[in-house]
Write a protein that binds this DNA or RNA. Structure first.
Length: 415
DNA sequence: CTCGGCATCCTAT
DNA sequence: CTAACGATAGGATGCCGAG
């Protein structure tokens, strides 16, 4: 097999960039040039920083911290509410441009793609020039900047795109790994998070270079055999995972809700579970999946998480079945302490699409399926918020305030 | 010993 | 003074009991 050529393209501070373009369209300021953050509902005490501008970063503001803390670090901070519908449009436009350069593109998140440019030297003889062309086209046509990382595999391309920002092209080829990657703190290595960093620091591994040169047996003592090999490969720039251009089927669906007012009674909790069963099962039905496993999670005021799940006898996509199981699981597990978060998940998804044949048609079940189908088709026509079960309206006040996932490059900023 | 089932942990955007 | 803190997904790990 020949060597590969991979690009990783990452929108700089995606949510801030995209909100900046949106505000500029309406004659507002460019929030990229002032201390600003994007977060959830600004009126919520529990809103956190989803993305920050480069000027905001200079105040020590970090992604994931409470907006209230960020405002104390910088009293003039501009806080912008995230607009997920707009972000999806920006994301689509950005990916459409990227897709023009290769048939093999992997959407890695809302603001990141991998391009497999292998064997395209006849069309694009100069990869660095091509990367600049993509980057500049995105800026000229859409108004926001990206970084492009170039390497012989996905890991190197991704590490490279995280180098100096914004609006830059970087390479990380095999002969550059020692010079460009090894001096970095070990926590900068993709997939080396907080826990792994701490364990590796315990055996005096501080940089990616330290990690690359450590005996695998030493690594195994602190992170286990499997992770030891994984980290050894990554630190040496080794990765043969393919760019997967087909989106894969979801392995599970989940919803979780952090509430403004702590939950103290089972009725409030069940209202939320019903709302969650509704949205989760609708998403699963949209994808023509059925689940064999239902789970709940919850978090108390000390941030301690608990989860409880159960395998079902047969697969289901019926809202009410999922809700009933979730309710049972909650009753079995919750001891009555106040909660700040409740979640519902379905997994073990079956997509074969074969109806389970039963000689005795369950009439109740048929009716519930008809109901779900009717609700789904109305939602499909008029949008998700057009209809909801009466009993979920109250909890939807919280659902609608739900913060939308960050998924920008910001969480890769570690410095 | 291996596997399924489950709870928890870790990592990512 | 400290603590404050989101949604969603995928995978790893450890434990336990069954076969």
């Amino acid at each position: 097999m020949h060597e590969r050529l991979i690009f990783h393209i990452d929108v700089n501070s995606a949510f801030v960039s995209w909100s900046a373009v949106e505000h500029l369209n309406q004659g507002g300021p460019d929030i990229r040039t002032i201390p600003s953050v994007v977060g959830g509902d600004p009126s919520s005490r529990r809103s956190i920083v989803a993305a920050k501008s480069i000027p905001a970063k200079k105040y020590g503001i970090v992604t994931g911290e409470p907006v209230s803390l960020a405002m104390r670090k910088c009293p003039d901070l501009v806080v912008v509410r995230s607009n997920f519908d707009w972000y999806v449009k920006c994301s689509r436009a950005f990916k459409a441009i990227c897709q023009e350069y290769t048939p093999c593109m992997q959407s890695f998140s809302i603001d990141e793609v991998f391009l497999d440019m292998s064997g395209m030297h006849l069309i694009y003889p100069d990869p660095i020039a091509t990367a600049h062309e993509i980057k500049d086209r995105i800026y000229n046509e859409l108004g926001f900047t990206v970084n492009v990382g170039i390497g012989e595999n996905k890991l190197c391309a991704k590490m490279a795109s995280d180098f100096e920002k914004p609006n830059k092209v970087h390479t990380l080829f095999p002969d550059e790994i020692k010079e460009k990657m090894w001096p970095l703190p070990v926590g900068e290595l993709f997939s080396c998070g907080k826990s792994s960093t701490k364990r590796l620091n315990m055996i005096h591994i501080k940089t990616i270079g330290d990690l690359a040169q450590a005996p695998i047996a030493d690594l195994a003592m602190v992170v286990g055999e499997r992770a030891a090999h994984h980290f050894h490969n990554y630190a040496n720039g080794l990765d043969n995972s393919p760019v997967v251009d087909e989106p894969e089927d979801a392995k599970g669906y989940s919803a979780e809700t952090t509430v403004e007012d702590d939950l103290e009674d089972i009725e409030s909790i069940e209202r939320i579970l019903l709302a969650q069963a509704d949205v989760v099962s609708a998403r699963m039905r949209r994808d023509e999946g059925k689940c064999r496993c239902v789970g709940i999670t919850y978090r108390n005021l000390d941030f301690v998480n608990k989860s409880h799940q159960r395998k079902l006898d047969e697969t289901t996509d019926v809202t009410d079945v999922i809700y009933q199981v979730a309710k049972e699981l909650m009753e079995e597990s919750w001891k009555g302490e106040p909660l700040r978060l409740v979640g519902l998940s379905v997994s073990d998804i079956d997509r074969d699409g074969f109806e389970q044949i039963s000689l005795f048609v369950d009439e109740k079940k048929e009716k519930r399926k008809l109901l779900d189908g009717a609700l789904d088709s109305i939602r499909g026509k008029y949008g998700n918020s057009s209809i909801q079960r009466a009993s979920t309206i109250d909890s939807n006040l919280h659902i609608n305030r739900r913060f939308q996932a960050e998924q920008s490059n910001d969480s890769m900023d570690k410095s």
